[in-house]
């Protein structure tokens, strides 16, 4: 990838996968997210940028209802996935999360073997009918995550024994194995060295062909490198949302310009 081609990078897909309208989040007394409207496109990498505490991770966690596990969080507004309201009482968050996978900031492999880590999702969702099919899923997922060549001889070794970058790619393979439609990534490279970061970024670009990827990042270079669309959050509000090239070259809002030129943040 070459970020010099930033401006020419076009969005190939116009179809919205997730649409959010008037989303508000409160953590107890704190108003963490104010009135966010956004449409996330299918088969596109969308980056959320903004200073710490701006609400970007909070919004990401709304998209697969991970905020449900936080007792004090209250979510209002409407978020739809393929037109279906995900906060509808008839929707089971468990089923939703099978469609909207998540990769976390810190690599969190389960204390199991590499194979079991990847096979975990397919097993609980019954995606494989036989052992051979499961092996197949594990292999393709690890290949997609660019980890297969490094671990194919030691699939029975514990996932926690891998290096940090390998662990994060294992977590991506684990999320990919569940065959999600959307992949949420919460600062997936913040614990990685530059080489591992480059590998993960390359991977994200490849994943775009199959999923819609939403990535939260602190690194504006990363957002510029991997995404087609960028949303800038500040103090709980969505300030600006548009094509990455436009956000980084001709931002409309003075706050966006101040942030990307390093004056706030």
């Amino acid at each position: 990838m070459n970020d010099m081609r930033l401006v020419e990078r076009d969005v190939s897909n116009r179809q919205a996968k997730i649409e959010a309208r008037g989303v508000q989040v409160h953590y107890g007394e704190k108003h963490a997210l104010k009135d966010v409207d956004v449409a996330i496109l299918d088969r596109t990498v969308t980056a959320f940028i903004g200073p710490s505490g701006c609400g970007k991770s909070t919004f990401l966690r709304c998209l697969n209802r991970m905020n449900d596990t936080v007792a004090s969080a209250k979510v209002a507004g409407r978020i739809t996935l393929d037109g279906q309201d995900i906060y509808d009482p008839r929707i089971d968050p468990v089923q939703l999360r099978a469609k909207v996978g998540m990769v976390f900031q810190k690599p969190n492999p389960f204390p199991k073997s590499i194979y079991e880590n990847v096979a975990y999702g397919p097993k609980i969702h019954g995606l494989a009918r036989s052992k051979a099919e499961l092996d197949e899923i594990v292999e393709t997922s690890l290949k997609k995550a660019a980890l297969w060549n490094e671990v194919k001889d030691r699939l029975a070794a514990p996932g926690t024994g891998l290096s940090g970058g390998q662990q994060q790619r294992l977590c991506i393979a684990r999320a990919v194995a569940t065959a999600p439609e959307v992949l949420l990534m919460d600062e997936p490279c913040s614990a990685l060295d530059p080489i591992a970061t480059a590998q993960v970024e390359e991977l994200i670009d490849e994943l775009r062909s199959q999923f819609s990827v939403v990535i939260v990042t602190h690194s504006m270079q990363q957002a510029a490198r991997v995404s087609q669309k960028t949303a800038f959050f500040h103090l709980g509000s969505l300030v600006e949302y548009g094509e990455t090239g436009q956000i980084f070259t001709t931002p409309q809002d003075p706050r966006t310009e101040a942030y990307i030129t390093g004056r706030i943040g």
Binding site: N64, M66, T69, V94, Q95, L96, R97, A98, K99, G101, M102, V103, F104, K106, N108, P109, F110, P111, Y120, G121, I124, H125, C171, R174, A175, T178
Partner: peptide, 22 residues
Amino acid sequence: PQSLRDGSLGLGATKAETVTQV
């Protein structure tokens, strides 16, 4: 660590699956 529970729940596992398998 809570991160393990999040990881499992984030894959669409139920609470029971998370507790017994992770």
